[in-house]
Nucleic acid binder design. Structure first.
Lengths: 155, 155
DNA sequence: ACTGAAACTTCTGACGT
DNA sequence: ACGTCAGAAGTTTCAGT
């Protein structure tokens, strides 16, 4: 029901599109040994069935003024469902939050947050996150260097 | 030299392409109030000058068999430049590592790793990461739920 | 299931404003 | 700097194998 419905051609197509989402069906056809029309049909199917969830342009953070990346650990005030929902609602309204994961272990959540500078980071943490009713405690770490950052799956 | 060379039209175009990297210049033209050829030219410029770094298809992790996401904290064995380089080289060869950031604070690095199941996670941690000469200690946390995951910048 | 050709859409460079 | 237009390129549907 999941992995069985994609064959080696589909995997190859997805692997290529992961690296360059603007490849044309002609491009795919060259590298996959299938006609352009077949690549088109397969791509459409993969999109419709949700294996390909969408296409995104990747922008340069630094050059667009978001030089600071931060990893923020969050502990919630109480651990009931309502409070978790309030926290989820808060996150969905905060565009500087790029990722938010609920974790096993000591910390409840880990966030990846981008800001232009330390001032706006401080405003975000002390002005938005900490004051929120759902949040008890946060711990902020600044990213010194990003060694790797890819959304690619190891197909 | 960084942010001054993009105007409001450029920002709008990038914001739209962040959400849908396959938008045609005609699509952009409708939403940006500029002719298609103008959108094409601006896009080319943004690509050439590196504001747009590329385009990626976003695949469905779960449906492709990578159901486990993990956040792994790593402490290096020694903190000299050579050892950091050995660690960086290791990471670049590991496709299951989607992100790797060097941090301020207690932990040296934080990794985001995707695996199909607990068995392959264990193989990765105990068979690849821990045995490596550059690594002293790792702490693995499993992602229970991902609330948000976007590469989009808050333009 | 796949290919190839035909109809349609999109892209892009030349030109005029 | 921008829009218009026309030739080139890419996409997709459909008939044929």
């Amino acid at each position: 029901m999941t992995v069985a419905q994609v064959d080696q051609f589909d995997r190859k197509i997805m692997a290529l599109l992961q690296n360059d989402g603007r490849l044309t069906n002609n491009d795919l056809s060259d590298r996959v040994n299938l006609s352009p029309s077949q690549c088109s049909r397969r791509r459409q199917r993969l999109e419709e069935e949700g294996f390909i969830r969408g296409y995104r342009a990747v922008l340069d953070r630094d050059r667009l003024g978001f030089s600071l990346v931060n990893v923020i650990s969050v502990t919630l005030a109480t651990h009931n469902r309502d409070n978790a929902q309030r926290f989820a609602d808060l996150l969905s309204r905060l565009p500087e939050v790029q990722e938010a994961h609920a974790l096993t272990g000591e910390m409840d959540y880990i966030l990846k947050v981008v800001t232009p500078d330390l001032k706006s980071l401080s405003e975000f943490v002390n002005g938005v996150l900490l004051p929120h009713e759902s949040v008890q405690h946060v711990k902020t770490a600044i990213v010194l260097e990003t060694l790797k950052e890819t959304g690619s799956l190891p197909l």
